[in-house]
């Protein structure tokens, strides 16, 4: 019994130490890893001037998004729709979402100031939560087509319903200074 408990203890120790070490190691890094949030995005050209043609993001799977307050970054999906870019955050009403998607709650309740790094270029943005069904329809269609295996009417409707129910947040990555 003693040996059994000691083995269990080591089997718990290894993942616990791994998680804490990797989490702390990435905390102040220049950007996130796939699993762990990172720190401030400091490298990469800072975009200035006119808004780019965001259609290039159709070929971009994930981007790095950093909130200004509080300062942390994570990897996230991106969708272009109607000439603007949007990011999603799911599981918002689940237990998992409450601990994993803290950034989305902070963006919604705070000033929404953020920096996105896409293909090595940084863009200063402001996250504006979108609930307009007309806009959501287009974003949901792109989300479904890009990440959910196809934009079938059922899939798009399910995503739109998820947004309407509050399970999924959709943020527009607007130029800074946009109205909230």
């Amino acid at each position: 019994m003693r040996i059994f408990l000691q083995v269990i203890g080591i089997l718990i120790l290894i993942p616990a130490v791994s998680y804490v070490t990797l989490r702390m190691d990435h905390k102040d890094a220049d950007g996130p890893s796939i699993l762990f949030p990172g720190g401030e995005l400091v490298s990469g050209e800072l975009h200035s001037g006119a808004e780019p043609d965001w259609s290039f993001t159709d070929d971009v799977s994930t981007i790095e998004l950093q909130l200004v307050n509080p300062l942390s970054s994570r990897t996230i999906w991106i969708m272009e729709s109607g000439g603007k870019v949007y990011i999603p955050s799911g599981y918002m009403r689940s237990f998992l979402g409450r601990i994993w998607k803290e950034w989305a709650f902070q963006a919604d309740e705070g000033d929404g100031l953020a920096v996105a790094r896409i293909d090595g270029v940084r863009y200063e943005r402001q996250l504006l939560r979108i609930k307009d069904p007309a806009i959501i329809q287009g974003v949901a269609s792109k989300l479904a087509g890009k990440y959910a295996g196809g934009a079938s009417p059922e899939t798009v409707a399910a995503i739109a319903k998820s947004v309407a129910d509050g399970d999924t947040y959709i943020f527009e990555m607007a130029p800074r200074g946009g109205a909230r």
């Binding site: 203890g9 080591i10 120790l13």
Partner: peptide, 15 residues
Amino acid sequence: KLCAVITVVLVVSLL
């Protein structure tokens, strides 16, 4: 002592 050694080795390896 074994747990401490495992922890140190694991932390150094990961970092």
